[in-house]
Amino acid sequence: MNPILILQTGTTLPRLAARHGDFPMWFARSAGLRRHEFVAVRVDAGDVLPTSSRAYAAAIVTGSASMVTERLPWSERCAEWLSDQVLGMRLPVLGVCYGHQLLVQALGGSVGWNPQGRQIGTKSLAASAQAKTDPLFGMAGSAFRAQTTHQQSVLAIPQGAEVLASTVQDPHQALRLGERAWGVQFHPEFSAGVMAGYIRGRSDRLRSEGMDPVQLLKECGPAPEARRVLQRFVSLARGGRL
């Protein structure tokens, strides 16, 4: 069975990395992948993107501390690669946070600073009518909890994209971007402990932005349905059903 390709676009806070590992391990743990069942490519550090996708079952694009609007050279190369994968129907793709935004930009949508500011913490998402028949979101119900941390958002979706989930602060929390591509602004790979670590790690900044880290920590908790979205993507892709 071909491995899952994880395109790593950044790294986590040093304290979280020391305790939980870095992004690829979070995805692997959440999706139930063993070490030989995924391949991580550190695109932001100069790793070369695969010239052929035939060796992989699917691709996942991680989050990042970088901003898509910076249009960094490595990011632009990754966007071009993703466009080729999606439009050429080569690989199932799941973009997460930065990966979600990059996928949208690659397919003709737009990304920018969220006019309502930063969103962080465990939030309740509303699923759309289209989500009911979606392979990844069909069992999530009309509302589900998810871990979030981002300042930029998708401002305009590509032509033909479908909104699958939203919050008041971010109407494009999850999108279907073709037959085999999805983007989620939330983090299905985060545990509650990782989410709390981000809140603690950014507590001074959050206070300066008028948010209450103590209250955010009280609201922080598990988000099993969001994690199942990731698990369904991996399971369906590895089974050849995407």
Rank of each mutant, 00 (worst) to 15 (best):
M1H: 13
N2S: 14
P3H: 04
T9G: 05
G10M: 07
L13G: 08
R15N: 15
R15Y: 10
A17N: 11
A18R: 15
F23V: 04
P24F: 08
R29M: 05
A40S: 12
V41N: 07
D47L: 00
P50Q: 06
S52C: 09
Y56P: 07
Y56A: 12
A59W: 02
A59K: 02
T62G: 03
T62R: 06
S66N: 14
T69W: 12
E70L: 08
S75G: 14
C78T: 15
W81S: 02
D84H: 08
D84N: 10
Y98D: 07
H100M: 02
L102P: 09
A106K: 03
G112R: 10
N114H: 10
G117F: 14
R118D: 03
K123C: 11
Q130C: 03
A131I: 07
G141L: 08
A143R: 15
F144D: 04
F144P: 04
R145H: 09
T149R: 13
S153C: 15
I157M: 03
A165Q: 10
Q169L: 15
L177H: 12
A181C: 05
A181F: 11
Q185G: 07
Q185A: 09
P188Q: 10
F190W: 15
M195P: 09
Y198E: 11
R202Q: 12
L206G: 06
L206F: 06
L206Q: 08
S208A: 15
G210Q: 03
M211S: 07
D212L: 02
V214I: 08
L216G: 09
E219G: 01
R228S: 09
Q231D: 00
Q231G: 00
Q231P: 03
Q231E: 13
F233G: 02
S235V: 01
S235E: 14
R238N: 01
R241I: 02
